[in-house]
Structures are given as C-alpha cells and as structure tokens.
C-alpha cells in the first residue's frame, strides 16, 4: 500500500527538470558508485542531493517535471534521496507512469508553484488531491486519480508489482509453479 498522505519540508524546482538531471547517465550506467552517486544527482543544483535534501522531504516543481528519457528516475528520488512525494504543475507522462508503477506519490497540482515557498511544510493527500500548506495555513486542490482508474488502483495498491501479485493470487496454477521454481 502506498502512503497516500505525506507531510514534509519542500524544495522547489523550475520547469522542464529532465531525467538526465534526476538520474544522469553516469548513475544509470554505473559509471559512478557509492558516495559519488548522490553527488551526481541534479547537477543543476550542486550540493542539494549530497547534503541538503533529507528523507521525507517533498519536491514542488513547475511544469513538465521528469521530461526526457524513461529511465527509472522516481526510484532514484525515493530510494537514494528519500523524497516522499512530488507535486508539480505537470509531469512528463513517462515520469508519472513510472512513479505510479512503483507506488510513488506524484500529484498534478496547477497553481502549486505560487502556493508554496521553498521550505514550507506541506501535507499532500494523493487520495483527495488536496495539498495543505501547513506553514501558511492555505490549501489548494490538485488532480486526484479516480479510485477506479488503473493509475488510481496502482497508486493505492503500491504499484505494478502488488497489482500483478494480486493477479497471481487469482491464478493459483502459475503461483504454484513459481513457488516450486523458488525452492
């Protein structure tokens, strides 16, 4: 299950933040390892990934966040940096779908850039689409995923893997074969 309500401190990013910035080729292809990995993330903002962002923080971005290559950039944000959610004016389709597929909360929220100053504490509810600015006492509504839509289901279940696991529960013959193969 994805945690549908998250609270955290915000970092703001501009328009067209590409996956070449979030997950540079050097990381994708293993040219940097260990501590060097974090330092390579977001070269447009030196020092941010290595020493500023903390687990539980939330990214607020302008339009077209995650544009470019379809590399698994949401995973980098969540697993390497501990980013809890991304709220953006808009996302690239590929980034958004990659995020939903791993149960990483991403919310489209027109007006978010004006509603949040960097460092504000916000609460993001991807179930209702409501973003509360706890620092300023304001509220703005983004585009919630309908609960019965495929992305709505995927996000609520925690991604494609649990989605497929459920399918396996409904198909015991395949599941039995898999368990036999694992023994």
């Amino acid at each position: 299950m994805t945690n549908l309500v998250v609270r955290g401190r915000t970092w703001k990013f501009g328009k067209n933040i590409s996956t070449d910035l979030i997950m540079p080729g050097a990381i994708l292809w293993g040219h940097v390892r260990g501590e060097g990995r974090k330092a390579a993330i977001m070269p447009n903002r030196p020092g941010w990934a290595a020493s500023e962002v903390r687990p539980g923080d939330i990214i607020v971005a302008d339009t077209n966040f995650g544009c470019g290559s379809s590399r698994p950039a949401p995973r980098i944000l969540r697993e390497e940096l501990g980013v809890a959610a991304v709220v953006a004016e808009s996302f690239s389709r590929l980034f958004q779908r990659n995020a939903v597929n791993i149960g990483f909360p991403v919310l489209i929220c027109p007006g978010i850039v004006a509603a949040v100053e960097e460092g504000d504490e916000i609460e993001v509810n991807v179930d209702t689409g409501v973003v509360r600015n706890l620092t300023r006492g304001t509220e703005i509504r983004g585009e919630a995923y309908p609960p019965d839509s495929p992305p709505g289901q995927l996000l609520r279940m925690g991604g494609l893997r649990p989605f497929l696991e459920r399918w396996l529960e409904e198909h015991p013959e395949v599941k039995a074969k898999r368990e036999a193969a694992r023994r």
Partner: peptide, 11 residues
C-alpha cells in the same frame, strides 16, 4: 534529440 545538462556526458 536531447541537449539537457549532462545528457552526453559531463554536466
């Protein structure tokens, strides 16, 4: 197709 910072190597 792409000229993002760091796309073809060094940022």
């Amino acid at each position: 197709n792409r000229n993002f910072q760091g796309r073809m190597g060094s940022p």
